[in-house]
Computed example of a mutant assay.
Amino acid sequence: MAKKKHEEHENHERWLVSYADFITLLFAFFVVMYSVSSVNEGKYRTVSDSIKAALNPVNSTPSSRLPFAVGDAKPKMINPDMSSANEPVIRRMKEIMKKIHPSLALEMPDIKIIETGNGTIMISLPESILFTSGEARVRPEALPFLKSLAQILIEMDRHVRILGHTDNVPIRTAQFPSNWELSAVRAVMVVRIFSELYEVPISHLSATGFADSKPVATNDTPEGRTKNRRVEIIILEKSLTEETLDSMLPGNTPPAQPL
């Protein structure tokens, strides 16, 4: 007699498995949403950048097979040589000064260009290049030189300080009661020529008179007094403020480079 097959009972609770999976996924979804809503932006960017770097590696071949010493290159990166950026400018200034008017050629040895390590340039001009003794009117022979210099200042787009200096011999005239007025007016006259005649931005210019308070030589000899009667044009490095002037004043300057 054949055995009767057991009838298979239909499982009516199978839906619970799918329901449990759905609830688990829904819970995970809300956990993720909550995590994103309270994410730390800094950590998120760090993780994001790391993922991008891992998915998009940059393959580059070394530019040199020689060993690279980090310690040797570090000082150059921290303290870059600013003078190299000014070399073309100084070269042009020297070329301009070599073409100076014949009547001013005798004063060429007294023109000095001083460059500091922070990129600032100072041009020291003797009184006789720009002015007649005791006067503040710029000599016509000096205008072509100032025009060429103004073109360089416009190209460089830097702040420029004009400083007037005198010797200690007193001056008492109706126009200049003392050397303070003479030095200040001379500096202002150079500023006005740069701005009004040759279109150097006035916002980049300033003038200061020091009279005989900042000598570069002794006032006890005629030669020393001649050196002290001068106008200094200071071209500040772009990233520096006018406070850099303090380090450029006599006594704080590096050795000059005569032309």
Rank of each mutant, 00 (worst) to 15 (best):
D212P: 00
L182T: 02
K76Y: 12
M189T: 13
S133T: 08
N79T: 12
H165L: 05
L197G: 01
S50N: 06
F210M: 01
E7L: 13
I152M: 04
A187H: 04
S195I: 03
N40P: 00
K112H: 13
G117H: 08
E115N: 15
E107W: 11
I193D: 01
N179A: 03
D246L: 11
F22H: 05
A174H: 10
V216D: 01
A73D: 12
I114K: 02
V70R: 05
G251W: 04
I202K: 13
Y198I: 03
P80I: 08
V36H: 01
T221C: 04
D246M: 04
L149H: 07
L130P: 03
S178A: 10
E232V: 08
S60G: 05
I233G: 05
M33T: 05
I123M: 15
P88E: 05
R229H: 04
V47P: 00
F210A: 08
E243S: 12
I233W: 06
P102N: 10
K94N: 10
K4H: 11
R91G: 13
L104K: 02
A28D: 05
E181W: 11
V58R: 07
R137L: 11
S63C: 11
S206N: 07
N59I: 11
A174C: 00
A187S: 14
R230Y: 03
I111M: 09
L104M: 07
P75K: 07
V138T: 03
L149S: 09
P255F: 02
R92Q: 14
E127A: 02
P102A: 11
I171S: 05
E242R: 15
A207I: 08
M248H: 02
V138E: 06
Q151W: 08
K227D: 05
L143W: 08
A53D: 14
N228W: 09
